[in-house]
Amino acid sequence: MNIREIQLHESPPMDLLLMADPSQKLVAAYLEGGDCYVLEEKDQIIGVYVLIPTRTGTVELINIAVAETAQGKGIGKLLVMDALKRARRDGFKIIEIGTGNSSIGQLALYQKCGFRITAIDRDFFIRHYDTPIYENGIWCRDMIRLSQEL
């Protein structure tokens, strides 16, 4: 397995990115301002994440996605740990991440990787998405914000 940055001449894996964020408009916006990394196995992209600087010394980890066939194998944790390593290497002091109130597995993963809950952006998904999102039988309304000092 190899994690690498997407090159300018390559198209990002939109199918995977849209698994984690159903808004093509929002995905395109943060791809424009961030760096996209992919995990390849046997010349096939099976994971992706985006790092985007938000303020001085702070970077946000956005849109971690793993192909359905590769889920449950520790790939998500591998991607998060790679993002932490790259953010440290690039001199960032804080890394942030956000996920939906209904994203139970992601909330557990991020906390296992050292993130702590810092805020709740109430009704984030109602304000930014045209149609309701349901996950794990829960209406996804609020953005749970987490961060970690590097």
Rank of each mutant, 00 (worst) to 15 (best):
I133H: 09
I94T: 15
Y30F: 13
L16N: 04
K42I: 02
R55F: 11
R127I: 00
K85E: 12
P12I: 01
L150T: 06
K112N: 09
Q148C: 12
E60K: 10
T118G: 12
Y37L: 06
I62A: 12
T69Q: 04
G100P: 08
T131G: 02
A119G: 09
G72D: 01
Q7A: 14
I133E: 03
L39Q: 13
V59E: 03
A119R: 10
R86S: 05
R122M: 04
L61R: 07
Q44P: 00
L8W: 00
E32N: 12
Y110H: 14
I144C: 11
E5C: 14
L78N: 02
S11R: 07
S102D: 11
G137R: 02
I3T: 05
H128Y: 14
L84G: 01
L84S: 01
T99P: 03
D15F: 12
G74Q: 09
A28C: 08
L26Y: 14
I120N: 06
F115Q: 02
G34S: 09
D142K: 12
I45V: 15
G57K: 03
G91W: 10
E135I: 09
T131C: 09
G72N: 07
Q111S: 06
L18W: 07
I45K: 05
D15M: 07
G33E: 10
R55S: 13
Q24D: 09
N136I: 12
E135N: 10
Q7T: 14
I144S: 04
E5G: 06
I144A: 11
D35Y: 14
A87T: 05
G47W: 08
A67Y: 04
R86N: 08
I95F: 03
H9A: 01
G33N: 15
N136L: 11
G91Q: 02
A70R: 04
S23R: 07
R86A: 05
D142Y: 09
E10D: 05
A67R: 03
I6A: 02
F125V: 08
D82Q: 15
L146I: 08
Q71H: 04
L107G: 13
Q7K: 15
V66Q: 01
D90K: 15
G34D: 07
E41G: 00
I117C: 07
M1W: 09
V66D: 00
A108N: 01
Q44C: 03
N136P: 09
L51W: 10
K25Y: 06
R86K: 15
M143K: 14
M1S: 14
